[in-house]
Design a protein around this nucleic acid. Structure first.
Length: 697
DNA sequence: TTAGGGTTAG
C-alpha cells in the first residue's frame, strides 16, 4: 500500500504522523462517520495553500472506514488538477485506495477538462489506470475526456477515444455524440461531424447547433445556413445558442437580407436576447455593411460586455469609420469599461489608418502597463500602427522584440518599409522571412513588389513576381499585376508595360490602366496616353482619374487647349470626384481638412498661413490651382498649432500632386520643419527642401 | 459530475 508521492518521498496513507492526526482531530472532535463529514474540511480546501496542508487533510480522510465515498476526497482529487505535481499526487492517491469509484475518476476527468493546460497524455494515463481497476467508462466519462482532447485539438487521441466509445456501445448516447461532434468541429473534420449527426436517429437542439457551428468554423457558412433551414423545417425551435451560431454563418456570408430575417425570427419566437445574441446581431449587421443597425442595436442592449464594445468598434473599423471607432473607444473609457487586447487591436487599426500616432503610443504604453502581451495580433497591430504613422524606427523596435513572428508580422514590416521607400531593406527582410521558415502569402508579395517598384528594381521585382507561382504556389492577383505594370511604368519602359498587360490572364481593371496612364504622364507620352485613357474610361467612365491625368498630360505637353477640353468634358459628364482630404493630429486630436473647405474653427488663420507661405515662396496665387489642396491646409494648421521643432505628420487620402510636393519641400526649408506626409501610396519625408522619395512616387 | 454561442491583422 505504499505509493510514491509527487516529490519522490514514499508516503503511507495509514501512518500519518501524530501532529497530522492531532490537527485533523481538531476538525472533527467526534468519531468520524461517512454520513457526517467534518464540516470545516470543504471550506478549508478552498483556501488550501500547500501540499503539506492537503496531505494532512487527506491522511485524516483515509483513516475513515470508507474513504472512497468521502466527498472531501473527491474535492481533493479535483483540487489536484491545478498543477502537475498535484496531478501526480492524485494518481498515487487513487492507486492505493482499494475500490476507487467511477465517480472518483469522472471527478478527476472533469477537473482535468477544465484546466487550460494540455493534459491529453495525463488523462490517457488515468483512463488506463481506470480500466486496469476493472472500471468501465460511462456516458459521463466520455464527454469529459472528449472535451479535454478538444481543448488541445488532439484529433488522433479523439478518434481513438471515439473508437473506444463505439466498443463500449456508448456512441449512441446523445451527450457522448454531441461532444464528439464538437471535438471534430474544433479540428475542422466536417465529414466526421456529419457522420455522427446523420448516423443516429436521436438528435437534439445541441446536435443541430454543433453541426451549424462546425460548418461555419470550417468555412462552409452556406451549408451551415442550409442546415439551419432544414432544422426549422423539422419543426424544431431555435434557442439563443442556435441563433448565435447561424448569425455568425450569416455574418460570414455578408447576407444582410438573411440577417434581417434571423433578427425577425428572434423577435417573433421570443428567443431570449442575452448578451451573446445581442453581440452576434451587432457583429452580423456590421459585417453585412449595415453599421447603422449595428449601432442602434448596440445602443439598445440592456447589458453590454467588453465583447459588445469590441464587436461595435471592430465593426466600425471594418466599415472604415475610424474616427467613429475612436470616439466609441473614448466613450468606453469614460464608462469605465476595461479594454482588452481585442479592443486595442481595433483602436490600433484606426490609429494606423488615421495616422493618429499619439493615441497609438498611448495604446502601446497601456499594453506595457497592463502586462498585455505585445506578441501575436497585438504586436502585429503595433508594428502596423507605427509603420503607418511614419515611425518606421519604432515599428522595427517592436518587430525586433517580438518572439513569435508570423506571416502578418513580416508582411506588416515589409509593407511598412516599402511605403517608406526603403525597398532594399524590405527585400532583405523578405529573405530573412524565408530563412525563418515563414511562408509568404499574397499580401506579402504586394509589399515585396511595391518595394521593388518604389526602389526602381525592375528585374528583381520580375523575378519575385515569377517566384510567386513557381516557388510558393500563389496565384498572382490583379494587385500583383498592377505592381509590375507600375514597376515598368516608373522605369519608363512603357512598351514592356503594354506587353505585360496584354499577357494578363484577366481583364485589366481601372488600377492597371490608371497606373499605365500615370506612367504616360510622368514620361510625357501623349499618344499612348490617349489610347490608355480611352481604355480607362471604358472601365470606369464616372471616375475623374482619366480626365485629370490626361488634362495634366496635355498641359505638360504644351497642349493647353486639349487640357481645358478634358476639364470641360469632366464637368459635362458629371464625373465623380473623390474629395482630397488630409488629417493631422495635434495633442491627440485629429483635425480634418478638405480641399477648399473652411469648416475648421481656425479656418481664417489657416488660409492666412497658406497665403503667407505662398507669398514668401513667390508663388503667383492666380496660377496656383493647388493652393488650397487639403495637404497644404493641414500643413498650415500644423505650422500654426505646434512648437517650431515639432515634426508635422499629415495623412492624405489621395496621391500628393506635383505642385504640392514642391511647395512642401520649400516650406520644409523655409520654416525649418520636418514634414512627414503619407499619401495614398507611400511616405514622403520632407526636410531642408528635400524629400525622401527622391521624386520617385 | 455530461454537449452547442459573440469580438482580433497585412
Amino acid at each position: 500500500m505504499t505509493a510514491m508521492c509527487s516529490d519522490g518521498r514514499a508516503i503511507h496513507p495509514y501512518s500519518a504522523s501524530a501532529a497530522v492526526v492531532g490537527r485533523a482531530m481538531a476538525f472533527s472532535p467526534s468519531a468520524p462517520s461517512p454520513s457526517t463529514p467534518p464540516p470545516q474540511l470543504p471550506h478549508k480546501l478552498d483556501t488550501i495553500r500547500s501540499m503539506d496542508e492537503l496531505k494532512q487533510i487527506q491522511a485524516a480522510i483515509l483513516k475513515t472506514p470508507s474513504p472512497q465515498s468521502s466527498p472531501v476526497l473527491a474535492k481533493i482529487l479535483s483540487f489536484c488538477a491545478l498543477s502537475s505535481p498535484h496531478i501526480a499526487h492524485a494518481r498515487s492517491l487513487l492507486a492505493h485506495i482499494d475500490n476507487p469509484s467511477l465517480l472518483m475518476y469522472n471527478t478527476v476527468f472533469h477537473s482535468l477538462s477544465r484546466s487550460n493546460r494540455s493534459l491529453v497524455s495525463t488523462s490517457i494515463m488515468f483512463y488506463e489506470d481506470m480500466l486496469e481497476k476493472g472500471l468501465r467508462p460511462d456516458s459521463f466519462t466520455f464527454p469529459y475526456l472528449v472535451k479535454l482532447f478538444a481543448n488541445s485539438q488532439a484529433l488522433q487521441a479523439g478518434e481513438a477515444l471515439h473508437a473506444h466509445a463505439i466498443k463500449m456501445g456508448l456512441d449512441a448516447n446523445v451527450y457522448v455524440r454531441n461532444n464528439l461532434m464538437s471535438l471534430y468541429a474544433v479540428c475542422g473534420e466536417v465529414r466526421s461531424i456529419w457522420k455522427l449527426f446523420d448516423g443516429f436517429p436521436e438528435r437534439d437542439l445541441v446536435s443541430w447547433t454543433t453541426l451549424i457551428s462546425g460548418y461555419t468554423k470550417a468555412g462552409l457558412a452556406k451549408e451551415a445556413v442550409e442546415v439551419f433551414k432544414e432544422m426549422l423545417s423539422e419543426n424544431l425551435r431555435a434557442d439563443g445558442v442556435t441563433m448565435v451560431a447561424v448569425l455568425s454563418a450569416c455574418a460570414e456570408l455578408g447576407d444582410l437580407e438573411l440577417g434581417r430575417n434571423l433578427h425577425r425570427y428572434i423577435g417573433a419566437r421570443e428567443v431570449d436576447m442575452d448578451v451573446f445574441v445581442g453581440n452576434a446581431l451587432v457583429y452580423m449587421y456590421s459585417k453585412c455593411g449595415d453599421v447603422d443597425s449595428a449601432y442602434q442595436l448596440f445602443n439598445q442592449m440592456p447589458v453590454r460586455n467588453v465583447v459588445s464594445w469590441n464587436s461595435m468598434i471592430s465593426g466600425l473599423v471594418n466599415n472604415r469609420e475610424f474616427k467613429q471607432a475612436l470616439e466609441l473607444f473614448r466613450q468606453m473609457q469614460s464608462e469605465g469599461i476595461e479594454p482588452d487586447a481585442v479592443t486595442l487591436v481595433g483602436v490600433l487599426n484606426s490609429c494606423a489608418s488615421l495616422g493618429a500616432l499619439e493615441l497609438g503610443q498611448w495604446v502601446h504604453a497601456y499594453i506595457n502597463r497592463n502586462g498585455i502581451e505585445a506578441d501575436g495580433i497585438t504586436g502585429n497591430a503595433l508594428v502596423d500602427m507605427y509603420a503607418k504613422c511614419g515611425r518606421i524606427d519604432r515599428a522595427m523596435e517592436v518587430f525586433g522584440g517580438m518572439a513569435h513572428k508570423d506571416v502578418y508580422t513580416y508582411t506588416s514590416m515589409i509593407v511598412g518599409l516599402a511605403m517608406h521607400g526603403r525597398g532594399e531593406e524590405a527585400l532583405d527582410l523578405f529573405a530573412a522571412m524565408s530563412s525563418a521558415g515563414v511562408k509568404p502569402n499574397e499580401v506579402t508579395f504586394v509589399g515585396v513588389l511595391s518595394a521593388c517598384s518604389h526602389a526602381g528594381l525592375v528585374d528583381v521585382g520580375l523575378r519575385h513576381f515569377e517566384s510567386m507561382s513557381a516557388a510558393y504556389g500563389l496565384v498572382p492577383q490583379m494587385e500583383h499585376y498592377g505592381c509590375v505594370v507600375d514597376m515598368f511604368g516608373r522605369a519608363g519602359r512603357l512598351d514592356k508595360a503594354q506587353d505585360f498587360i496584354s499577357s494578363m490572364p484577366m481583364e485589366p481593371d481601372a488600377f492597371i490602366w490608371g497606373s499605365l496612364l500615370g506612367a504616360c504622364r510622368k514620361h510625357g507620352d501623349v499618344a499612348l496616353g490617349e489610347t490608355v485613357a480611352k481604355r480607362l474610361l471604358d472601365v470606369e467612365p464616372q471616375e475623374e482619374g482619366a480626365y485629370v491625368l490626361m488634362s495634366n498630360l496635355y498641359t505638360a505637353g504644351n497642349r493647353r487647349s486639349d487640357g481645358l477640353r478634358m476639364r470641360k468634358a469632366m464637368r459635362a459628364n458629371k464625373v465623380r470626384k473623390t474629395p482630397g482630404c488630409s488629417l493631422i493630429e495635434i495633442d491627440g486630436v485629429i483635425h480634418e481638412f478638405r480641399k477648399g473647405e473652411e469648416l475648421h474653427p481656425l479656418a481664417k488663420e489657416v488660409y492666412a498661413m497658406v497665403a503667407e507661405f505662398g507669398r514668401r515662396l513667390n508663388i503667383d496665387s492666380s496660377q496656383d490651382e493647388a493652393r488650397h489642396h487639403s495637404e497644404r491646409l493641414a500643413m498650415a494648421f500644423g505650422l500654426i498649432g505646434t512648437r517650431p521643432d515639432t515634426p508635422l505628420r499629415i495623412v492624405k487620402n489621395l496621391r500628393v500632386c506635383h505642385d504640392c510636393h514642391s511647395v512642401i519641400k520649400s516650406v520644409s526649408r523655409l520654416y525649418n520643419r520636418e514634414i512627414v506626409l503619407r499619401d495614398r501610396y507611400r511616405f514622403h519625408r520632407f526636410k531642408d527642401g528635400w524629400c525622401s522619395c527622391n521624386e520617385f512616387w
